[in-house]
Computed example of a mutant assay.
Amino acid sequence: MPQLGELNNTEITEFVLIGFSGKPKTRMGLMSFLILAYLVTIIGNGLILFVYVAEPRLHNPMYFFLCNLSVLDVCYTTTSVPQAIANCLVDRPVMSFNMCYLQMYTGLYLGSTECFLLAVMAYDRYIAISNPLRYMVIMNWKVCIALAAISWVGAFMLSIVPCLANPARFCGHNEVDQITCELTALMKLICSDNTVGQLVMYFTSSFTLLFPFSFILFSYLRIIVAILRIHSSGGRWKAFSTCGSHLTVVCIYYGTCIFTYLKPQSKVMEEKDKVITVIYGTVVPLLNPLIYTLRNQEVKGALKRLTGKKQRSQH
């Protein structure tokens, strides 16, 4: 953990999250949305993991990466949403310094991992569509495990290690204008020269956001070219519908993250910054299971088979 800064020998031991202080109606509305979103996220991703484990027909690279994404989304929302719900119940919620930093580090790491994992999934879909006959040869299990490991380990090296190498120093001001302990919000409280920290954040954000997003756009461009070669109009429409929904969620996630981390940082937290935090921290994990798998015919078929087996065993 970074060492605490001091101002007039005053040590910061806690942060006050004032994101929506003085707005009880806004907090109650936000709390209702967060509860609903969290339940849908947990149930949707839990269902995906259950179907994958129970149905051997889904044991292929695409669903292996989707399971990684489901585990990631469950952990990602759990690190922040329950605490955000609790914070909505009081006007000036307080978090200890260590808990706040733990939440920030965990969210930063999991969010960075998702950036890499979405790029890996786009590559997997590109191989499946452009080279279906050699798909299982190219995307063998060693390659799949290696790509997943690179996503998890690479995110740690680019998100957590730079923060630990450049510890922040804070003055006596401890009011965070956010609903969670988010990196850009905490950076506004740093009283020492943070030029190096800003440069490191822009550099690492470029690797975790711009490069994967550019790769995804390139992959989907190649996928669209491959789809146009499909002779069946029904097949083309189905493929375009699937890719369009995938790309929409990807653009929402990367777009909001790029806006948050690559724009010039100011000392003032605007209302739109808080809304954007809710979008990439809550809405995208909610949409992922709906877009990637619950609209998928193979998953629906697996659910019907598992439900049929359960009913037959009961009879």
Score class of each variant (00 low, 15 high):
207 F>M: 12
101 Y>L: 06
57 R>L: 12
226 A>L: 06
151 S>V: 02
107 G>F: 00
205 S>C: 06
163 C>F: 11
183 L>K: 01
69 L>S: 12
212 P>C: 04
72 L>S: 01
149 A>G: 13
123 Y>R: 12
313 S>L: 13
26 T>W: 10
146 A>N: 10
245 S>Y: 01
76 Y>I: 02
175 E>D: 04
226 A>E: 04
217 L>Q: 05
193 D>F: 04
61 P>D: 07
77 T>A: 14
308 G>C: 14
77 T>L: 14
26 T>F: 13
269 M>Y: 01
41 T>N: 03
28 M>S: 12
104 M>D: 02
230 I>Y: 05
228 L>G: 09
99 M>Q: 15
164 L>F: 13
297 Q>F: 13
128 A>P: 04
304 K>A: 01
260 T>V: 04
10 T>A: 14
138 I>Q: 11
301 G>P: 10
181 C>M: 11
8 N>A: 10
17 L>M: 12
104 M>E: 08
63 Y>E: 02
224 I>S: 15
71 V>H: 10
56 P>H: 11
55 E>V: 02
287 L>Y: 01
184 T>F: 10
208 T>F: 07
199 L>D: 13
42 I>V: 15
295 R>M: 09
296 N>K: 05
6 E>Y: 13
145 I>E: 05
133 L>A: 15
221 L>P: 03
310 K>P: 00
278 V>L: 11
61 P>G: 07
92 R>K: 11
58 L>H: 05
133 L>P: 03
54 A>R: 15
182 E>R: 01
88 C>Y: 09
10 T>S: 14
61 P>I: 06
241 S>C: 04
29 G>C: 12
73 D>T: 06
218 F>Q: 06
18 I>M: 11
182 E>V: 01
76 Y>D: 04
201 M>D: 07
178 Q>G: 03
48 I>M: 15
196 V>M: 15
132 P>R: 12
178 Q>L: 02
291 I>T: 13
164 L>K: 08
236 R>N: 14
189 L>W: 05
266 S>K: 09
21 S>G: 08
230 I>L: 14
155 A>F: 00
180 T>D: 07
200 V>N: 13
188 K>M: 15
84 A>D: 06
126 Y>V: 06
304 K>R: 03
169 R>L: 10
